[in-house]
Design a binder for these strands. Sequence first.
DNA 1: GTCTATAGATTGATAGAC
DNA 2: GTCTATCAATCTATAGAC
Lengths: 215, 215
Amino acid sequence: MNYIAPVKYSATQEIILDTAEHLFATQGIHATTLRAITSTAKVNLAAVNYHFGSKKQLIQAVLLRRMTPLNNERHRQLNAIIQTARDENRRTTVAEILHAFIEPTLHFSQKNMAHKDFMSIVSTLMMNPHNEFRSLFVSIMKPLIDQLFAALKAALPTIPSTTLQMRLQFTLGTLTFAMREIDIPISAQQQQPASDIETLIDETVSFVSAGMEPL
Amino acid sequence: MNYIAPVKYSATQEIILDTAEHLFATQGIHATTLRAITSTAKVNLAAVNYHFGSKKQLIQAVLLRRMTPLNNERHRQLNAIIQTARDENRRTTVAEILHAFIEPTLHFSQKNMAHKDFMSIVSTLMMNPHNEFRSLFVSIMKPLIDQLFAALKAALPTIPSTTLQMRLQFTLGTLTFAMREIDIPISAQQQQPASDIETLIDETVSFVSAGMEPL
DNA sequence: GTCTATAGATTGATAGAC
DNA sequence: GTCTATCAATCTATAGAC
């Protein structure tokens, strides 16, 4: 259910995808040229067009390659907590639901530099409502967001849908900043040590869980 | 204190700035050509370079034109609530502090399409830590964020700085999504009516105020 | 599959007439 | 200040040899 099998790529294709991903994240999709990708990847200039067809199709491949396994895992965890609650004959809690979405997202984004880069691309794309790749992104995310909203609605039946919808948007904003570790400079005094991933997950879940039901 | 006087522009310069702002927001800064700007603005192709020097300097002018008055107002409101609390011989509350930052931000972003476009550019820029305009943006925002953090620290003295810093990042993420009304499609059933600005402000403040002090 | 060479289009920027 | 004309540099994409 909801599982999508990943696409297999050759070694050359993987090198191109890895390099494109890094350059897209650090310099922006539009600012990254095929020349920059192929020269950094040490493959021929014509390789991108041969293996992927066009720059646009390469971008889509970069997005789908990691988005598919990430969403598979998010679906798996959501289904798991729903099933567990059903087995125990109780409602799922808000914190459980949010954790099932946040935990795989933050673990994924902190896995290594490549995954960090990928999440950087996704969050930048998500910010621009007029982006040409937005419809691709939306079509991938929609089933998951629908499932997440339905679970929250069931856990908080007294909150109006409009309000709940707004708070879910806020939650996604919180998570976007959590996974990017956006470093808006706070307090000049000292460089803060980066907290570990488990702390980040706990802090994020408790922040949005509290926001979901303000006093 | 903290007030920065705005720059004056000629009619032609204003038209160029307005047009560039809209195109930057809808198509992205890199994807927007000087030809697109000048033809849409119905000015000569050479006008941008004559009036602003280069595309890069035009981008900086677009950013500073609106960021300056917005931050002036944010500083004004923060100073006002701090002064009021001092006069009443009490601490500022967390909700007061967050409201003083969120209210001007959301009112500004909902003022009209041009302001919405501007905030779209800013939030996109903020998402990319490697952006070439990030240092400009950071230098503008730093004094304000420092003041905000200091106020929160004074209102919540028992929360460790590292934790508070993280929660402030979450707050900025929430606000970014609130002002952009990022429309990740939730619940297919029906199109939700856009809520009014006052409701949006109240919901945002109560969400992040609750998150600031989870149970 | 990999490579060179190049076509064909578009870009930011400027020189110089008015 | 505005305009035309144009340069030099870049881009994506492809044709065709190996």
